[in-house]
Design a protein around this nucleic acid. Structure first.
Length: 482
RNA sequence: UCCUCGGUAGCUCAACGGUAGAGCAUUCGGCUGUUAACCGAAGGGUUGUAGGUUCGAAUCCUACCCGGGGAGCCA
């Protein structure tokens, strides 16, 4: 919301405290001010001070500025109070001294309740005692809404249980920690896009409504499409990606995906975001290099641009600083042997559980690339290894610290006859894949790509216990609200 | 779906067969440098629901509801 308007009239004298809506605020409006005026003029509001954000406060030392935000917390003594103002970009401690302020303003500030909305004007001052290094000496304030004490803001600065916090997710996002996670998520998403864009990839988004499964139907959410047809929410854009790669060479899709898995763990959501690149004229080694490069780039960007957020989260950044290329590479065969040596009861042909993934990476300070899985445990479209056709040219990237598989992908089958045979082996109806078979009919080439789960990646960056904190409104097995 | 843990004040928890309690939040009072401020006082409860055992149940038993953690599957 823009406040400044050079052409609008100014008030003769500063207004110490203004209440926009007295019905809501429960406080008397300042005499002589008609609340109806200010929505129109916009200038009565906060005098002439420029509006700044807390994240920029260091550039305004010594200046009088206005900050529009919410009361994060307040500490008060008899004649001095310290409102902590939150504006979405950070938190700043304001200082209101009774002796220096009109009685009305001081009392209004002192009695303010948590998460009341207000615009504070005052002088920025470097202050060693304050977190963030700056304070705001209050000169005037406009209270937009005072939260009623009869129904106070439910999330206090003290402890809360996860059930309560999840029920209040729409408010929980206002906490320092959740804001930090969302900013890191933003950095991760932006860095993913930059990584691909800088290498000539084109973003081509794939449909959310899809007519059939990519990899079996048990984990699909069914949707009634105008009474006549059953459609499913996508669980991967990969098949469409392959078509797009044949058109544009290097592509990626980036959007929500849906899995109706009845998983109830700290690593699962039913709705999560996934980025999926796909390259024409590419083999497994190209896919591995792309995946490794992506991870290194995104970790670097988070470290470079989100130091403050990592600090809020008390993330051990050494664990991220060690994430440099090259990542250790290992075949599935060797991984099974390593796991057996560490006491896992895994046998050849089985997929890794989470305990196996944690075991495998426990001595590594960076992710591990595991490739050449048994074809039986992989989807129908994986290209078999030329040296052993029981192996699929798939690769998983397993993050350290127990964060598990963050990337899965590989090289796709380009031979039409082999692909058809695999469809039949997997009991998939070939007629549903006619368009997909076309890609092998009209100029087929080796190609490959992968998918990376954004929330799992963000959880790893942030060091969160559970990925539910890494998306604003998580959708899980037993939680779909708010 | 299976295994496992839990549901007591607005919130976090205590009481574990014998009168339901504390901290925070809220209200009132005090405090000019507080850092989840502190000090004093007050209000606040059909112990998830329904049955059962018992002289007596938050506590023991049964069923159901809701949630946490994990397994399988996956990103």
């Amino acid at each position: 919301m823009e406040k400044s308007d050079a052409n609008a009239p100014r008030t003769a004298a500063p207004v110490p405290v203004v209440v926009r809506d007295q019905r809501v605020a429960g406080l008397p409006a300042t005499a002589g001010i008609d609340p109806a005026n200010f929505q129109e003029s916009g200038v009565l509001l906060t005098m002439s001070a420029p509006r700044v954000r807390i994240s920029d406060i260091a550039h305004h030392d010594g200046q009088t500025v206005s900050i529009a935000g919410w009361l994060y917390n307040i500490r008060r003594s008899g004649k001095i109070c310290f409102p902590l103002l939150r504006d979405g970009s950070g938190i700043i401690q304001c200082v209101a001294v009774k002796a220096n302020l009109p009685e009305e303003l001081f009392e209004a500030l002192k009695d303010l309740t948590q998460e009341s909305s207000l615009i504070v004007t005052g002088k920025v001052r470097a202050e060693a005692r304050a977190q963030g290094g700056f304070e705001l000496d209050v000169e005037s304030a406009e209270i937009i809404q005072r939260v009623s004490e009869a129904d106070p803001y439910p999330i206090t600065p003290k402890d809360h249980g996860i059930d309560f916090l999840m029920d209040h997710r729409h408010l929980w996002l206002r906490s320092k920690r959740q804001a930090a996670i969302l900013r890191i998520r933003h950095e991760v998403i932006k860095s993913i896009r930059d990584y691909f864009d800088n290498q000539g990839f084109t973003l081509v988004d794939t449909p959310i409504f899809t007519p059939a499964a990519c990899e079996g139907t048990t984990t699909l959410f069914e949707v009634n499409y105008f009474d006549e047809e059953k459609l499913y929410l996508t669980q991967s854009g990969q098949l469409y990606n392959e078509a797009n790669a044949m058109a544009l060479g290097k592509v990626y899709c980036f959007g929500p995906t849906f899995r109706a898995e009845k998983s109830k763990t700290r690593r699962h959501l039913t709705e999560f975001w996934m980025v999926e690149p796909e390259m024409a004229y590419a083999d497994l080694e190209d896919v591995k290099a792309l995946a490794e490069g992506l991870v290194v780039y995104c970790v670097g960007r988070v470290l470079e641009n989100r130091k403050a957020e990592l600090e809020v989260l008390e993330r051990d950044v050494k664990k991220l600083e060690s994430v440099t290329a090259p990542f250790p590479r290992m075949s599935y065969d060797d991984a099974v042997k390593v796991l057996q040596g560490k006491g896992s009861d895994i046998t050849w042909g089985g997929d890794f559980g989470n305990t196996d993934e944690t075991l495998l990476t426990q001595d590594s300070d960076r992710p591990i690339l595991v490739d050449r899985y048994p074809s039986e445990i992989k989807a129908f479209y994986f290209q078999p290894d030329a040296e052993n056709d029981k192996l699929a040219l798939g690769v998983d990237v397993i993050a350290p610290e127990g964060y598990g598989e963050i990337i899965g992908g590989g090289q796709r089958i380009h031979d039409p006859e082999l692909l058809l045979r695999r469809l039949k082996e997997h009991d998939l109806p070939p007629e549903a894949f006619n368009w997909y078979m076309d890609l092998r009919k009209y100029g087929t080439v080796p190609h490959g790509g992968f998918g990376m789960g954004v929330e799992r990646f963000v959880a790893w960056m942030c060091g969160t216990e559970h990925i539910r904190e890494c998306i604003a409104y998580p959708r899980m097995l037993y939680r779909t609200r708010p």
